[in-house]
Each structure stands twice: as C-alpha cells, then as structure tokens.
C-alpha cells in the first residue's frame, strides 16, 4: 500500500508535500469537493424550499405560469444535460485510463452539449422577454401577463385570457377579475423560474470555464492513472449541476400539464 514518501524526494510531481500518498491526496480532495457541493445543495435547497411554499400558496398562478413555458424545450434540455453528464463521466474514465485523445474528445463533447443547453435556455428566455413575462419593471416593458406585448404575435403571453379559456373548456366560468389576479400572481412563478434557472445557467457557465481549463491540462498530458483528481472533481461539479436540473425540470415545467393539453 502507501509507503511514506516524506523521507524521499522521489515522488509524483502532482503530489503536494503535506500528503503521504497520491491516494490520500485524492481522498482529501474528494472530501473537500463534496463539502463544497453540500454548501451548493443548501443554496439551491433554500430556493427549492421557498419555491414549494409559494407554489402551495399561489398554486393557480404557478399553474398559469408553468403552462406558459415550453415543455418541449425543457424536455429537450433535460436530455441534452443527461447526455453531457454521460460524456463527462466518460472523460473521467479516459482520465483514469490515461487515454489523452479520448479525454480531450469527451471534454469537447461535454462543452458542446453544455453550449447547446445554454442556447436552448437563451431561446426560452427570449420568448419570455418577448411576451413581457420577465418579473419586475426593469427589463423590457415590465411584467405584463395580459397580452398585447409580443412583437411576433400580440395574442401571445395573455395569461389572463388563457386562464378563462381553459376554465371554459372544463365547463366552468372564471370571473375576469379573478383571471387577472391569477395572471398577476404568475409573476411570482416567473421570479422563481428566472432566479432558479438563472442561477443554474450561471453554474453551467462556470462549469464550461472549468471544462476549458481541464481540456488544456488534458492536452498537456497531465492526467493518467496515477493522477486525475482535477478531472474527477470537475466531473463531480458538472454532475451536481445536472442533478439540480433534474429537479428543476419537473418542478418548473410539469405543474398540472395534464389539464392543459398542448
């Protein structure tokens, strides 16, 4: 097993002097990375908790907001991110085996899938911008869920009308004042939508930066069976971001979809 290397100067160049062995160093690094990821879990956890509380209190507004975002893009993005997690896992595998070309290829593949995710997210954000569904008064013309805002089709983004229309299909009637109130309350949903997906997208950008750095180190041939800890920890980060999305997708996109056949 691990013989003490403090008595000799011969050791792997990546071994920091405070560690006895490469195995001990990797164990400490993995532990440290997980502790960092736990702080991330708590940060997103706070948002998820706040989301749940408001979803329960303003359920109609959340349903109206959720059904106005594109479930197809959300679904496609989930698949893209899962595929990127697979290529990332393969990059780490190639790191353990010391196959340089495969490391670089899988890292590039992960970055392409990550970029595809962000492009789809951008398209979704643009649609919401066009429909004036961005909360607050700062961006665009300000939040307005009563339609007449979109440059492409003024009928788009009229949540108040959609609420009434939907009720009519179910054989019920919703007073206009009540529909307008639901439309206004959907602003709370959009606040959570943009905050949570925005924070997630920011993590994706950080991840892309990490992947570029890992790519350069891979290219220099720094990773092999003896040392691939940065690749492993970069992988942990990327998979964590994937897990956040795995929960964001059903919570944001799939509220009461069955009642609103698209």
């Amino acid at each position: 097993m691990s013989t003490s290397q403090t008595t000799t100067t011969e050791h792997h160049p990546a071994l920091a002097h405070q560690f006895d062995s490469m195995a001990q160093q990797q164990e400490a690094s993995t532990f440290g990375m997980w502790v960092f990821l736990l702080t991330e879990i708590m940060m997103f956890g706070g948002l998820f908790t706040a989301y749940l509380i408001y979803r329960i209190k303003y359920y109609d507004g959340f349903v109206a907001g959720s059904t106005s975002i594109s479930v197809s893009w959300g679904f496609a993005n989930t698949l893209v991110l899962i595929a990127s997690s697979f290529t990332m896992a393969m990059a780490v595998w190639a790191g353990e085996k010391g196959i340089r070309k495969a490391q670089m290829g899988f890292l590039i593949g992960t970055m392409i899938l990550g970029a595809a995710f962000l492009c789809i997210k951008g398209e979704e954000y643009y649609t919401k911008y066009d429909e004036c569904h961005i909360p607050g008064r700062v961006i665009g013309k300000g939040f307005d869920a009563t339609g007449g805002c979109s440059a492409q089709d003024p009928k788009l983004g009229n949540i108040a009308e959609e609420v009434q229309q939907h009720a009519k299909e179910l054989g019920k009637t919703v007073p206009e004042a009540s529909a307008l109130q639901t439309a206004r309350q959907s602003e709370i949903f959009f606040s959570f939508y943009f905050l949570m997906t925005g924070l997630h997208a920011f993590h994706m950008l950080v991840g892309m930066g990490l992947l570029s750095w890992l790519f350069l180190r891979s290219k220099r041939g720094e990773f092999g069976p003896a040392y691939h800890t940065p690749l492993e920890l970069g992988g942990l980060y990327w998979h964590f971001v994937d897990i956040v999305w795995i929960f964001l997708f059903p919570l944001l996109y799939l509220i009461s979809r069955h009642a609103h056949a698209v």
């Binding site: 997690s85 697979f86 990332m88 896992a89 492993e232 992988g235 942990l236 998979h239 964590f240 994937d242 897990i243 795995i246 929960f247 997708f249 059903p250 919570l251 799939l254």
Partner: peptide, 18 residues
C-alpha cells in the same frame, strides 16, 4: 414526478459521481 427525479439523482450520484 418528484419520485422519478429522486431516482435519477440517486443514479447520477451513485454511478456518475462514483
């Protein structure tokens, strides 16, 4: 929906995250 999400997260944590 949440149960499926939990199963997916557990698979990622156990296998992809080693």
């Amino acid at each position: 929906a949440v149960t499926i999400a939990v199963i997916k997260a557990v698979l990622v944590i156990l296998f992809f995250m080693h």
